[in-house]
Design a protein around this nucleic acid. Structure first.
Lengths: 233, 233
DNA sequence: CGGCTGCTTGAATAGAGTCAATAAACGTGG
DNA sequence: CCACGTTTATTGACTCTATTCAAGCAGCCG
């Protein structure tokens, strides 16, 4: 999305020298554990979440290939969130000094990281507004649209049918609902003809209606990266 | 919290060359308006919020002196959030190019901005978890503790008594509750001896109990900035 | 003084949670 | 490839938390 120089590409590649694989359900980082490496997600889907005292869980964010994971390791001694693989996945781990050297030596990459942070911030605030001010049905619909859109960004072939890859429990933890109620909301969306469910796959039958039900705002329109300073070669 | 060089201080000072004042209730940035300047908040309290289709509002974050405002102006053509003064306040506006030049010429400042982003990210995820997974009482208690703590960081004299500076409507918009229910929760916290309310002031009578009720996690313990690269003078 | 805006409280309602029981799908080892 | 145990999905009945609606009050400012 932004042209990088050869030098910058080589520098970024240093983050992806090693590779590690995780199975669905594996933990990349556990809340309150001593922080360690950072990761670039190369393949698969992971989530970050927090656990509350009463044992309930809140999923904060779903991550897709290209995302930077565990950035908070840079500034905390103890991890503020848990990172878990939602599918089998591949990550490239790297150490903090590698990252901070990259930031210092390549200011435009630092600027890109800042852009990434802002996009994530807006995603978090959208979810925040959904939890605070929208109905259960809207929140479930929003998760469906969000997941489909993010998958489609990586694979243009994905249309209105896709494999969600989340249990209803996980949808509940992302939306602040119980699994039981998620089930009822999915049924309702189905009864209203907005979605269809077919053995693991999800199909969006009436996207405009679903987007309306979800209070969906497309944040990718209106993104403007022209401010990024020109490279110095 | 981190030592900056003279050069870096001078560079940062460039962001604070101008000054502008706003009255309580004034809008610094309106959602969906064309984005413009960024700000450093120098004095007063402001909030950022979003409006939903049905007219309800979700407050995303309260900002205190030293905070960077409207950073998303860098990457969006249209503002994703509204920024409003909660008290009379003073800000230092600056243009995008000023900021991006600063980031490129002073990598350690860029790193500091990244740290700031991460701290804000964690604050947002804490609120997210509160909205998704905690009771109304816990959320209201959390807002009280959060506001007191942030005020105390700027004014050490503040103890258990402080001026909240929020209407119950605003507390509701921050916690995803109705003003009516906020009122009931405040009464309950008062009846249980955790707080007292005295003409505009709020007093925390039993902080440990309140912190427990709020599921409060102190994120400032465990912050580690040692990774920040040494200055090159 | 009159008109706001914000606070308080009660009564009725609605939306989401809890509990429980069953069914379907999945994975693993034999 | 099947049998078994486990996880996930589904549905109903009941409960409870927070919302809605309504009314009254207090404080503030022009």
């Amino acid at each position: 999305m932004v042209a990088l120089t050869e030098t910058e590409h080589r520098a970024l590649a240093r983050l992806e020298e090693r590779e590690r694989h995780f199975r669905r359900g594996a933990t990349l980082q556990r809340e309150n554990d001593r922080t360690g490496e950072l990761f670039v997600l190369r393949k698969g889907v992971v989530m970050s979440s927090v656990l509350l005292d009463d044992g309930s869980r809140q999923i904060l964010r779903f991550h897709f290939p290209g995302d930077l994971l565990a950035v908070s390791s840079l500034i905390y001694n103890e991890a503020p969130e848990t990172i878990t693989a939602l599918s089998d996945c591949t990550v490239c781990p790297f150490e903090r000094p590698t990252f901070s050297a990259l930031m210092i030596e390549h200011p435009r990459i630092a600027a890109l990281v800042l852009v990434y942070n802002q996009i994530e911030r807006v995603a978090l605030t959208d979810r925040l507004a959904a939890l605070g001010r929208t109905s259960a049905k809207a929140r479930v619909a929003a998760v469906l649209i969000e997941m489909r859109n993010r998958m489609r960004m990586l694979d243009k072939r994905i249309g209105d049918s896709f494999v969600l890859g989340l249990t209803q429990e996980e949808i509940g933890d992302a939306t602040g609902l119980t699994a039981v109620h998620v089930n009822r909301m999915l049924r309702q969306l189905e009864d209203e003809g907005m979605i269809a469910r077919e053995a693991g796959r999800m199909r969006l039958l009436n996207e405009p209606a679903l987007a309306r039900a979800a209070n969906f705002v497309d944040r990718y329109k209106g993104l403007d990266l022209s401010w990024l300073p020109a490279s110095r070669g």
